[in-house]
Nucleic acid binder design. Structure first.
Lengths: 194, 194
DNA sequence: TACAACCTAACGACCGTTAGTTCGCTCGGT
DNA sequence: ACCGAGCGAACTAACGGTCGTTAGGTTGTA
C-alpha cells in the first residue's frame, strides 16, 4: 500500500493555500504522516511532484468541464452555462482542486513558468473551442444574434473569470451577488430581442 | 541620499514576479546595489517592507482610479469605463504596480492574509461605491434600465476582473480580444433599447 | 571658525533555522 | 533472494535577522 496518492492530495492542498515556495516538503510529509526523504521514493524532486499534481488536476478538470457542457445539449444554453459558473464557485469553496488550478495558472512558480503554460494553454484553448461548438449548434445559434456564437463564448469566459476572481479574493457569497447582477446583462446582450 | 525608495521599487518588482516567499531579501538587496543588512535601516522586517510597499501601491492606485472616473462625468459613461479597462491592461503590461496589487490581493502571503484583507476590502468597496455614484448621476441613469445603476456597476466590475484575469495568465493581446467581444454585449445589456 | 557630539545609512561577519536533496540502512511482502 | 517503500542522519545552500562598527554629513556650542 503506497502513500503516493496521499502525498499528491496533501501537496495539492498546501500548494493551493501557501503557493509553491510557501509549501515545504517537510510540512507536506508531516501532513501525510511520513518523513521528508520518503517523498523521494515517488518523486524525483519538488518540481516533479508539483508537475505531477498539476497534470492530474488538469486532466480531472478537463473531464468535468466536457461532461458538464455536453450533458444535455438540447437544454437552453444559458441554463447550462449559469449552472457551470455556480458549480465552479462551489468547487472553489469546498475542494482545493479548483483553487490550486486557478492559483497556479495565474501565478505559476517562476522557475516553472514555461512548462506550466505549455500545459495550461491547450487546456483553455480546448475549453473555448468546446464552448463555441456548443453555441454553434443550430438550436442555440438561432437564438443568438447573427455570427454571435464566438462573441457569446468569449463574453461568457470573461464573466466566468470575473466571478471566479471575486470568489478568490472575497467570498462565494459576494461572488454570487456579482453573478446575479451580471447574468441578466449577459443574457440581454447575447440573445435576440424578440 | 537614501536608498529607501529604490528598495521599495525593487521589492515591488520582485514581489510581483516571484511572490512574497519567492523574493528573498538578499536578491532585493543585490538588485538595489546594497547589502542585505542595510534593508533593516529602513524596515523592521520583511513583512514590514511588504506592507509598506503594499500600502503605497494601494494609495497610488486609488488616486489614479478616482481621477479617471471623475475626470469628465459628462461624457457617455461607457466611453469612460472602456478606457479604464484599457488603461489598467496597459499598466499591467508596462509597470509592475498593477501586477503586484492584483497578485497580492488574490493570493496574499498566508501569514499576512488578515492584515492585507483589512487594506484591500475598503479599497474595493470604495471603488464600487464611486462607480455606482457615477452611474446614478441623472445624465447616465436615464440611459440605463430603471434601477440599473447597481447592476451595471457590478456587471462592469465582473467584466473588468475577467479581462484582467486573461491579461494575467496569457497576454494583453488576448485580453483585448476578450474585451472586444464582451463590450458590445455589456452595452446592449445595460442600456435602454430605444 | 573650530571642533566635538550626534545621527544615520550602510556594511562585514555571523547567528539559528530551514530549505531541498542524498546516502545507506531496515523491514515487510513476493 | 529480491525489491521497493520508508527512515535516520547528514549535507550544502539559502533564508530572515542581529551585532558591532564605520564613514559622512549635520548640528550645537564656544
Amino acid at each position: 500500500m503506497t502513500r503516493k496518492p496521499a502525498i499528491e492530495d496533501v501537496a495539492l492542498q498546501l500548494f493551493a493555500s501557501e503557493g509553491f515556495e510557501g509549501a515545504s516538503l517537510g510540512r507536506i510529509a508531516d501532513a501525510v504522516g511520513i518523513r521528508k526523504p520518503s517523498i523521494y521514493a515517488h518523486f524525483r524532486s519538488k518540481e516533479d511532484l508539483f508537475l505531477c499534481v498539476f497534470k492530474r488536476t488538469l486532466r480531472r478538470k478537463q473531464y468535468m468541464l466536457l461532461r458538464h457542457i455536453l450533458q444535455d445539449t438540447a437544454r437552453p444554453f444559458e441554463q447550462t452555462l449559469r449552472e457551470l459558473v455556480e458549480r465552479l464557485m462551489d468547487d472553489h469553496e469546498s475542494d482545493a482542486e479548483t483553487r490550486f488550478l486557478l492559483r497556479m495558472s495565474y501565478f505559476p512558480p517562476s522557475a516553472l513558468h514555461d512548462r506550466v503554460m505549455e500545459l495550461v494553454n491547450p487546456f483553455f484553448a480546448q475549453a473555448e473551442l468546446g464552448l463555441i461548438r456548443l453555441l454553434e449548434q443550430p438550436v442555440h445559434a438561432e437564438r443568438l444574434r447573427p455570427e454571435g456564437a464566438q462573441e457569446a463564448a468569449l463574453a461568457y469566459l470573461t464573466i466566468l473569470d470575473g466571478v471566479m476572481a471575486e470568489a478568490i479574493y472575497t467570498t462565494t457569497a459576494k461572488a454570487t451577488r456579482r453573478l446575479d447582477a451580471v447574468w441578466p446583462v449577459y443574457c440581454r446582450g447575447v440573445l435576440i430581442t424578440k
